[in-house]
Design a protein around this nucleic acid. Structure first.
Lengths: 342, 342
DNA sequence: TTGAAAGCGGTACCAA
DNA sequence: TTGGTACCGCTTTCAA
């Protein structure tokens, strides 16, 4: 009240010492009461006085001070290098957050935009999280993983198309998406498959493995078939140009990056008079609502997350029993939902 | 190396004291060197020894300890109650993060799922952020704002459809979206406007104000027109049912929640034989690519973020000059892009 | 040029 | 049942 000019410095933040002073007890007692410490007996009268004092002052404990003293935090760090696209990831993160909170972890998304990988990892380590779940955007190396574990992280887990040496891995193997689409098309007798490659660099981590999956499926099929990448920006004009030279490509099928790219190409192909699916079969990915609204209805690879154990429980286990062997968990299931477009 | 069993406890995290010991200097010197403190002269030899020791140990400073000592942090908290939908928000958050980081703030997204508003605000306050940017999902009250400022936050800023008493506001006034669409339709002679209302509760904060905007535009137009809300779940079946009874509704126009809802309804209407735009005009929102791919091409309300000052700079200013009057900044611009559907 | 020591806000041990 | 106090890791005066 009477310490500093309240104008510029603002009302100073109340500490447990302020609560203790107001309640006429020691800081230790304040700590006991507010944390419901059961190993120590405090009279109800004192309890009430402390509680009232804390309420009156608007006291809120200082998380950093607490975890500094405790020597550990319960912070799980999700470094969001970039927003991952699509409802699948959205759902995954929402569920993960909910479940981790239920296990009493504090989930923090740390924006690492504009930092290079080494800087980013250092910045994460400064926060001393108990675990880090790193999406594919930041490439973890064994060295970087080491920085994190040496800073006290009990578990370092990557989330992405492929595992990384030295860290646990939640794998969303995109190859299976491409492979599923390719197997379907091959089974329908298609032999020349184009694979749409989005130019958005943020999607490259997904598009590459999907193409690899297509190529592998073509090779292992034994059929005299081929697959060919087709770069395409998400704009009408490039799509129209691609459609204009479509017949020169000699393709009888195309796997789009997702349903939206499929829609873009389908429109261009139809405007160019290319018959779908007679001349060219089209397969999307994501099984979005819009695919069902297109005519012909879009065949699409449905992706689902399926894990033997919910990811949050997995992370909790890895935190509590560190030092075990690196684990790999495949989360992505893909199957092609056949409709009219191919 | 030889201190503790490395098996269970793990290698203990190196502190500045460890660095000091290894370099043969005091902790103070370590701090000076690693922070490039210019007010004090350290010999180059010492500098190098400290740097080497820090590197060898893999030392990373402890952010919590540092800001505890400093008495303040540079953490800007973005409590992500729910992921906000659409590329517009996506872009907004990415830019905000980038810009804040450039101003040397640490951006932390804190997942508050599963907490009620009061718990959530307390949890935020425990982190002692220097500023909080709260999306509309969590309803801030003057009391809750007080908890944050009393915990040391220099700026509390809401981000949502309407401002909140006691906090600064970045306003995305969705009413203008509805109003723009309605004005366009009225100018084209439409007089009975349906307004699609998504059932997803997460979208209610946006849908409500948009409807309000439509109603206001209809009232102020002076025309003998009416507007009517039409609840619709994002599924084919409900859309088909709505389309089946469309002609009984006596509507000559409909404003969809966004382009995807517009596509859903257009397909159902077309399947039911309702002529677009002859019988019913359709207007979407968001001006997504898919609207341009529909036939007829979709008229849509384009939304843009425009601010006199980039939000990050605004936040920085509010942090550095706290105690000023509450500010309100309107960010959303809406205008209708006319295509073929209405 | 460097070191000793205080202190940021909590928690928990040991006494009283 | 309660209080004194050391300590978590770091920064920053003040002295040497």
């Amino acid at each position: 009240m009477s310490q500093l000019p309240e104008q510029s410095a603002g009302p100073s933040v109340p500490t447990s010492a302020d609560v203790a002073r107001l309640a006429g007890v020691s800081r230790a007692t304040v700590s006991y009461v507010l944390n419901d410490n059961t190993t120590v007996r405090i009279s109800d009268a004192t309890r009430r006085r402390v509680r009232e004092a804390a309420f009156d002052l608007g006291y809120v404990p200082h998380a950093a001070a607490r975890s500094l003293r405790a020597g550990h935090s319960r912070m799980v760090l999700l470094p969001a290098a970039q927003q991952l696209p699509g409802p699948l990831h959205q759902r995954f993160f929402t569920d993960l957050q909910t479940d981790l909170r239920r296990l009493d972890y504090t989930v923090v998304q740390y924006g690492s935009v504009g930092l290079d990988a080494d800087e980013a990892v250092r910045a994460w380590a400064e926060l001393r999280p108990v675990a880090v779940v790193a999406p594919g955007g930041v490439h973890l190396t064994p060295h970087r993983t080491g920085v994190l574990t040496r800073s006290g992280a009990k578990a370092v887990i990557t989330l992405g198309p492929q595992p990384v040496e030295g860290a646990h891995a939640l794998v969303l193997d995109q190859r299976e998406v491409g492979a599923s689409a390719a197997r379907h098309l091959l089974s329908r007798g298609r032999r020349s498959i184009g694979v749409l490659m989005p130019q958005d660099p943020g999607l490259a981590v997904f598009a590459g493995p999907r193409l690899a999956g297509v190529l592998r499926a073509v090779e292992t099929s034994g059929a005299a078939a081929r697959a060919e990448p087709l770069p395409l920006a998400y704009e009408e004009e490039p799509a129209a140009r691609l459609a204009a030279r479509w017949r020169t490509l000699g393709l009888d099928a195309v796997i789009a990056y997702d349903d939206e790219y499929a829609m873009l190409l389908m429109r261009a192909l139809q405007d160019a008079g290319v018959g779908i699916p007679e001349e060219t079969a089209v397969v999307g990915a994501g099984d979005l609502m819009l695919g069902r609204l297109l005519r012909p209805r879009l065949t699409s690879v449905r992706m689902e997350l399926a894990a033997a154990q919910p990811p949050a429980e997995l992370i909790d286990r890895l935190i509590r029993h560190p030092g075990g062997p690196r684990e790999r968990h495949d989360l992505l299931r893909a199957r092609t939902v056949v409709r009219e477009s191919g």
